[in-house]
Design a binder for these strands. Structure first.
Lengths: 359, 359
DNA sequence: CCGGTTTAGCAAACCGGTTTAGCGGACATT
DNA sequence: AATGTCCGCTAAACCGGTTTGCTAAACCGG
């Protein structure tokens, strides 16, 4: 008659089975070192007691956790609301599962990423969106934990996976220019609150902006700084920016968003303003999330292999983790490409109307 | 000159600082037990050596991990592709972060959920969609780990959070009937491959189906079994079902999907079949994911408080975890409600046309 | 029958921390 | 001067497993 007693330990099983702790351990981990019937008996006793080896103790002796961490400088609650992150996690999970690793999500604990990392029991970390200017990069670097960075080059001595942000953005810009648009609005993704650094020219927003500008420069046009507005990479973020831009009198003919979620929000807000897409305003996104083809209208966007990004990051990481081969860090860059759907069209001759509207 | 040496342990810091391990431990955990300057000196040495207490060892002595697990019977890679799960995780993450807990995702390891759970170092588990018929519930039950179930009543001795599936589905059914529809198709969500049990009348699909049927029964109509088709709760799942249904000659005037992702897929497939929504076919979803208002056309769906579900589950769990109060398990049920948008409309008098089309 | 090899299982050390019990010295009290 | 407290710190035990030596008995060939 066992009451609400604690979980049985290995010693309990040993006593009950009349053997040593060693034998119990063997029964689970190297049964061949025991007489078959002994192993069987021990396991029966264990099963009977509901014994389950304490995974923490096991981790301690084996000095590995079979877990990889996904590190994000933003709160998980904001991260998970971005469909991009879901897809990325999907890739990460796929590769991790394949190798028998579990997944642990690490986000700032009481505001500190480094602290959160200290508490986390992981064999390695995939860090996404850890920008160069983050105040804790130095502590993270010193943590002596294998890391692979995604969408960032903040820690060049570690491996990394990125995409061709500049090229993708340039393609989007060229396409929009080809349709005759010159008056555009850029929707940039806000860096996590933690690094207030400002523009961060090497962050995702900076790189994509560079791509857009390259395209414009090539035809002698330009994108003024006041045309670049940043906000959270979410549907609501897109809505908010468009509304405030319209209030400020901006009347662009095309929107270049750095995230599909923002682009979708933008389309929403534009429609609420009684504007037709792409008749009045063209919208281009970035990411090509699963739902991009299914929104109204289907979204023209820059495709990036989101899942593969997650997979590659894990593979890179595990290659370091498994053979402690910290040799030369590998940097991998994946391709992007423009996917034209129906949210973009040629610019309409309505300059005068817009001009009258403004001011 | 330190080479690629291992991470420093507490003993290294102690030696370097000329104190005992105890003192080092105190310097970090209860500095007030040391002379101020001693504590400072020790921390300086630690900082200098790049010492970081091994979290696993710490967990072992404290007998808590400050981590909660999110258990799902499906592979994470399939789970993360469902926007519903993203939102749910958001709620979970929110509540977990608030209490200083980390998040560990647990999915079947080499096919075994119980094994995955054994390896996981968590203080408690939120299990989502663990159906009654799952072959490993018994092992999971015996794991001696606090659990809260979401959308399931498989383990009545543990706490649970569910929603009013039946009521929500009934509301959707009544609304569709009110629009004149009688010829419907139900898109059910597939239980995870692991529990091949079959229909599972108490699973999510079973409960919602009951709701639809109650509504139909109330007006003397019925939904035949062959009108119920199950598939993965994803956009692609919805597309596949609609296509095969149309191939089989079904020409319903309304689709009742048990997941927004499926509903979106269904709309996609319908549009590809040159059908108008809601002119030719009405579509109702379930979940009310963030994007539901933004798809084309905005989706009529049954709203459920997805994030709150995650939050409540964590709160329930932590109330058990923190004071080991296994007293009476709490069961909480959240409300659902129908949100009418534009994917539904009155049935069109086109019966004859459909009849001619069929067979 | 004897020395050598296997086999089955054990005791003890170890993983890297935390915590308990206690000790010597400084200081206060009588 | 003797006694009692407090302070600052330490040695050793402990968390719950795994792993390393090692031993006693069984086995084996000659």
């Amino acid at each position: 008659m066992e009451q609400g007693t604690q979980r049985p330990r290995i010693a309990d099983v040993a006593r009950e089975a009349g053997v040593s702790k060693t034998a119990v351990s063997f029964a689970f981990n190297s049964p061949d070192r025991l007489a078959p019937e002994t192993a069987l008996r021990i396991r029966a006793v264990a099963e009977d007691l509901g014994y389950r080896p304490n995974p923490v103790a096991r981790m301690l002796t084996q000095r590995q956790t079979m877990t990889i961490g996904v590190l994000t400088p933003q709160a998980l609650s904001v991260i998970f609301s971005n469909p991009f992150f879901g897809a990325f996690s999907e890739g990460v999970a796929l590769a991790a599962e394949e190798h028998g690793y579990g997944l642990h999500f690490i986000s700032p604990l009481h505001g500190s990423l480094a602290r959160a990392m200290s508490r986390a029991t992981v064999d390695g970390v995939v860090a996404i969106g850890l920008s160069d200017g983050h105040p804790e990069v130095e502590q993270i670097r010193r943590a002596h934990v294998p890391i692979v960075l995604v969408d960032s080059t903040a820690l060049p001595e570690h491996g990394s996976v990125e995409i061709d942000d500049v090229g993708g953005a340039r393609a989007a810009g060229e396409y929009i220019l080809g349709l005759g648009h010159r008056d555009v609005l850029i929707l940039g993704v806000e860096p996590p609150a933690a690094d207030l650094g400002g523009p961060d020219p090497d962050g995702v927003t900076g790189r994509r902006l560079r791509g857009y500008r390259e395209a414009f420069a090539a035809v002698g046009a330009r994108i003024d700084d006041d045309r670049v507005m940043v906000g959270p990479a979410s549907v609501d973020g897109g809505i908010a920016i468009i509304n405030s831009a319209w209030e400020d009198g901006f009347r662009p003919t095309a929107i270049l968003a750095m995230s599909d979620a923002m682009a979708i929000g933008a389309m929403r807000a534009l429609r609420d303003l009684r504007l037709d897409i792409p008749g009045d305003v063209s919208v281009v996104g970035f990411d090509d999330i699963d739902l991009a083809p299914h929104v109204d209208p289907p979204l023209t966007t820059v495709h990036q292999p989101i899942r593969r990004k997650g997979e590659e990051a894990v593979r890179l990481l595990l290659s370091v983790v498994e053979r402690r081969d910290l040799a030369r860090p590998e940097h991998r860059r994946l391709e992007t490409r423009l996917i034209v759907r129906s949210s973009t069209g040629p610019v309409r001759a309505r300059r005068e109307e817009v001009a009258g509207d403004r001011d």
